[in-house]
Simulated assay, not measured.
Amino acid sequence: MRAGAQAVPTAPTGKETLVWSDEFNGNVRRGQPDPAKWTYDTGSSGWGNKELETYCAWGSNASPCTAEQPSAYLLGDGYLHIVARKMGDGVYSSARLKTQSLHGFLYGRIEARIRIPVGQGIWPAFWMLGDSIAAVGWPACGELDIMENIGKTPSTVYGSIHAPGGDLTKSLTLPDSQTLGEAFHVYGMIWSPGRVQFYFDNPSNVYARYTPADLPKGAIWPFDTGKFFILLNVAVGGNWPGNPDSSTKFPQEMLVDYVRVYAEGQDSPKAAAEHSSVREILH
C-alpha cells in the first residue's frame, strides 16, 4: 500500500493467531478503559524529556486531574479517547496507558489503528518497554517506538528503537501535503528473533528494519531477552516536539480503534494463551 492510502483493519494470515486485543467496545458513556488490560503512569516528572503534561489515572482528582473530565475513556463509539487538555497557564493534563504488570509480549505482529491529534508541541505515541525496566532501568530494558509523531512534522511517522549504547530512528512521510491526523491509520511492528520491522497501514508496507548489526559497536540488543508491555499516550511539550504555542488548540484527542497482538505459528488455543501469558513485575 502506498504511503497515505486509507487505512483499513488488517486480518491475520493463515500462520498467525490473535493472542491479545482491545477493541474498545462498550456502551457506557465516559466509561473506564478495561482495568484488566490497562493501568496508568501518573504524575508530572517531565519523563526525562522536559514534558509539560501531568498524566492522570482513571478517577483521579489530584490537581490538575479531575474525575469529571477523565483523560482516557470510552464513549460507546468503539474508540479509546486519550485527551490532552490545557488546565491553566502552562498546566496540561493527559493520559499514559500501559499493560505493565498485566500483559507482556515477546515477538509477533503488534498493531493499532489510530487517529492522532495535531498541533505544535503535541506528541502522540504507541510504543513498548521491556518488562525488566523495574529491575534494570532504561535504556537497558529496551524501547520499541511503533508510532511517534510531533506536531511540527504532521505528515511524518517515526519508528525507533532504543537500546543500551544505541538509538535508531527511521521515518515515513506522506505525499502531497497529507497529514496523519486527517484519518485513521494502522501503525504496526513485525517482531522476530534478531529483527524488528515497522510498517504503516499494511504489514507489506515496511518502512524501517532493524537488526543487532545496525546498532553501534558495543551496543546491546535487548529485544530477545524478555517480554515487553504496551503503552499509549499523548505528551505535551518536551525536548523533541518543543512546547505548545499560540497556534496550538486544546483539547487535543487521540482516538484508538483497536490494539491487536498476533503470534506466528500458534497451532492451538493453548499455545496462543501461553504465548501471551501475563508476567507480573515485582516492585
Rank of each mutant, 00 (worst) to 15 (best):
G43M: 05
G48V: 08
R209W: 00
D34Y: 05
S21T: 11
P164V: 11
E53L: 02
P244N: 00
R279V: 15
R113C: 13
T248W: 03
P9M: 06
A208I: 07
N205E: 13
E53D: 07
I281R: 03
N61T: 12
T179M: 02
I161Y: 04
V278I: 11
N49A: 10
G31A: 05
F229K: 03
A272I: 00
F200Y: 13
T248S: 12
F24I: 10
L129N: 05
P241M: 09
K249Y: 00
E182W: 00
G121M: 02
S204G: 10
G218T: 06
S155H: 10
T211E: 15
A219V: 08
D167I: 07
F198P: 03
F24G: 11
V278W: 09
I146D: 07
K170A: 05
T169N: 08
K249H: 03
V196I: 15
C141N: 00
T17K: 09
V118R: 05
K86M: 12
P64S: 12
A84F: 08
S94P: 08
K50N: 15
D77H: 05
L168W: 00
E16C: 06
V157Y: 02
S63H: 14
S132F: 03
G78N: 07
I116L: 15
T153V: 14
I161S: 06
P9T: 07
G59H: 11
G237A: 10
V259L: 09
V196N: 09
N233Q: 07
F198W: 13
K50I: 01
V28A: 08
T169K: 10
D131M: 15
D167W: 06
K270C: 00
D167N: 06
D224Y: 04
Q197M: 13
A112Q: 12
R30M: 11
T169R: 09
E182P: 01
Q178L: 15
E143F: 06
P269H: 02
G165K: 05
D214I: 02
S63C: 02
P269Q: 04
S192N: 06
R115A: 13
W47V: 03
I133M: 14
S177F: 03
L232I: 14
I146K: 04
V261L: 08
N149F: 01
V234Q: 08
Y207F: 15
V278M: 15
S60R: 09
D167T: 14
E51R: 05
I122W: 04
D257L: 11
A7R: 03
E16L: 11
P33R: 05
F126K: 06
S155K: 07
R29G: 00
I116G: 02
C65H: 05
